[in-house]
Design a protein around this nucleic acid. Structure first.
Length: 635
RNA sequence: GCCCAGAUAGCUCAGUUGGCAGAGCACGUCCUUGGUAAGGACGAGGUCGCCGGUUCAAAUCCGGUUCUGGGCUCCA
């Protein structure tokens, strides 16, 4: 353990010591250090409140004051059981003891009256714990399994010194100020309305400008890289998603199907129960089952999912993914190997039924638009195409100054059966991803179980202001959907061949990306993205005409500007523009009107003095055209 | 979905033991015509999330429900 982890881990023991003094009947589970502090999971009938937290923290301070020594003791397994029984903590600790493999040492740590099964290590004396604070109470399932009892988790944080603790707490406060939900409301970027629905984003005019600029930006890159733009509808027939495998395997994370009227009327006429109707919705014909299973070479649709044709119910699904629609565009025409790769791109809106407790501002929603594309290529082209996709993601992140991300190669979980396709194809796809990731020049981790159900992927993961990780850009290699949909192209040998698909989205979703972007810039967007780029501030209405004149010129140049004609004094108008995070404020008085000049105040530098308007116009046009990043603010 | 905590004006928040619904900012009108982060006066704005119960009387107490927040679980 690092020294900091020792401090935090020791704090969690002190927390447990104090907790048992206040609530002697608490049953302890585990209390490890974390990246930002520590916690202890406890089972306690009493519902802990904020007041309890204060009480426990006060007791912790006493424990520290008592300067208890942490003493390690290794014991044989039988004795460990005795100790746990003696301290009355058998409910969870016996299970934790059983987790320790045979042959590993079993150790207890004691400080004062408190004894805990623990591998260590710890600081030597409690007085070494100089700066800690309990932060919150949360529910957490025992062993992280939702089938187990939910325990109360007490979160806290600790640092070597009071100064560092104070700095951390201030950082937390700062983080709250740039939370995209708060800024989104203040800067009027988006709205979520109860009557429209949870997790459904309404893009307001200001937010729509940011989204539109991002889409224009990526579209320019797509043209350079030989993509074709397509449009597809928001729904598709269930049959489509039965073929792709989305339905019913991921039924629980989709909106309910929309029944097709005649089909439903017929089922009702047969007095078909709800349960029966759903079973018919999920079922496939024997022919479809044989076709798909034959193509993929193993049983991906089990026999018990078939029903006679006349009993199949049909309907539509709000699309959970864009791939099936794009596949159908590809399949609508014959392709020669000379046509490949075919790259179909769409800002495609998809809908997923996220559990209510998981929704979060713009970053976890139920309807979102992916900057999606599907590449159909030969097996030989896979490596190069994946590289092209990765470079696109890097262009996006670099242009926006987002350098703090990690790369994750998501592989299949060898113990799970949720994946479709042959092991052989999976091996090939995983190899392609791994090799592409190596060329990125950034470190990456390989994580089993993080793959999509149809193939492995390379994800770009960034942290939000409070440390939560969000997957943004993604590139996925897929040997499976082409098989399920029986896609082919004619090769040089005049024989049909199976193409390989690549799914990729450099932003991921417009919603999540904008949410993270708001926090990344703390609302201070680069000029090219700023909803309002220039605020004209006349000192008095005597120069209103000059203001209108400049406004017209700025707008004619394609810039987003407004004129503040309120009767406030200059200071108030400047303040308003600052709070609204407008990059440039142009102050106009009699002198400027006379000289056709403007007094420039930039968000980054403050008052920059008077320059000719024509000169300013060139400067800002240049800044927009190059998509320049904002300069660092003056301190 | 689960645990805990919340919901009062557009925003941030006060509201005592159950007794006429409050402030600041924003907004509107008027006065003020000014030089780089708040000029002044007046005004408008609320079915206290929603439904039900207790009570002479509910923002306040009780039950339910919806939504939000912090976690947990999940995220093809």
């Amino acid at each position: 353990m690092t020294p900091l982890e020792e401090i935090r881990h020791s704090c969690s023991h002190v927390l447990a010591t104090a907790l048992l003094r206040v609530f002697p009947d608490a049953k302890l589970d585990i209390g490890p250090p974390t990246d930002t502090g520590f916690y202890y999971d406890v089972d306690l009938d009493h519902k802990l409140t904020a007041e309890d937290l204060a009480k426990i923290e006060a007791e912790m301070k006493k424990v520290v004051e008592e300067n208890q020594q942490f003493v390690r003791r290794e014991v044989p397994r039988e004795e460990a059981v005795e100790i746990i029984k003696k301290i009355g903590q058998e409910r969870y600790k016996l299970g934790r003891l059983a987790d320790i493999p045979e042959g590993e040492p079993i150790s207890f740590y004691q400080n004062g009256e408190f004894v805990d099964l623990c591998a260590g290590t710890h600081v030597r004396y409690t007085k070494q714990l100089k700066a800690f604070k309990l932060l919150s109470i949360a529910g957490a399932y025992h062993r992280g399994n939702e089938k187990n009892k939910q325990l109360q988790r007490i979160y806290g944080t600790a640092f070597p010194t009071k100064d560092e603790l104070q700095q951390y707490l201030e950082r937390l406060e700062q983080a709250k100020l740039r939370d995209h939900r708060k800024l989104g409301r203040e800067l009027k970027l988006f709205h979520i309305d109860d009557d429209v629905g949870q997790g459904l984003i309404l893009w307001t005019p200001a937010g729509s400008i940011i989204r539109q600029e991002l889409q224009t930006f990526i579209s320019e890159e797509l043209r350079k890289q030989g993509y074709s733009q397509v449009f597809t509808p928001h729904i598709g027939k269930l049959t489509l998603y039965k073929t792709s495998g989305h339905f019913p395997y991921y039924k629980e994370s989709q909106f309910s199907p929309i029944f097709e009227n005649e089909s439903l009327a017929k089922a009702i006429g047969e007095n078909c129960s709800c349960a029966e109707a759903f079973s018919r919705l999920e079922a496939v014909s024997e022919k479809m089952r044989q076709d798909i299973n034959g193509r993929v070479g193993r049983e991906v649709i089990p026999a018990d999912r078939t029903k006679p044709d006349d009993q199949l119910l049909d309907g539509f699904l709000l699309k959970p993914m864009n791939c099936p629609h794009h596949i159908k565009i590809f399949a609508s025409q014959p392709h020669s190997y000379r046509d490949l790769p075919v790259r179909l791109a769409e800002f495609g809106t998809v809908y997923r039924w996220e559990q209510s407790g998981e929704l979060n501002g713009m970053t976890r929603v139920r309807g979102f638009t992916q900057d999606d594309a599907h590449l159909f290529c030969t097996e030989e082209q896979v490596g190069q195409e994946v590289l092209g996709c990765l470079s696109l993601v890097k262009i996006v992140l670099t242009t926006l100054g987002m350098h703090d991300y990690r790369v994750r190669v998501g592989l299949r979980d060898p113990d799970s059966n949720k994946y479709t396709g042959s092991a052989e194809n999976w091996d090939k796809a995983e190899k392609a991803c791994r090799e592409a990731a190596k060329t990125l020049g950034v470190s990456f981790t390989e994580e089993p179980g993080e793959a999509a159900f149809y193939g492995p992927k390379i994800d770009f993961v960034v942290k939000d202001v409070i440390g939560r990780e969000w997957q943004l850009g993604t590139v996925q290699v897929d040997y499976n959907l082409p098989t399920r949909f029986d896609l082919s192209y004619i090769g040089a040998d005049n024989q049909p061949h199976r193409p390989v698909m690549i799914h990729r989205a450099p932003f991921g979703s417009m919603e999540r990306f904008c949410g993270v972007l708001i926090e990344h810039f703390a609302g201070d967007f680069p000029v090219w993205l700023a909803p309002e780029q220039i605020r004209l501030v006349p000192i008095s209405d005597k120069v209103a005409d000059y203001g209108h004149n400049l406004l017209a010129q700025l707008r004619a140049a394609g810039l987003r500007a407004s004129l503040d004609e309120h009767s406030d004094k200059l200071g108030a108008k400047v303040r308003r523009a600052e709070l609204e995070k407008v990059p440039y404020t142009l102050v106009l008085g009699a002198k400027e009107a006379e000289a056709q000049s403007v007094s420039v105040r930039s968000r980054a530098k403050g008052d920059e003095g008077v320059i000719p308007f024509a000169q300013y116009l060139e400067r800002v046009k240049q800044e927009v055209a190059t998509r320049a990043l904002p300069e660092k603010k003056k301190a």
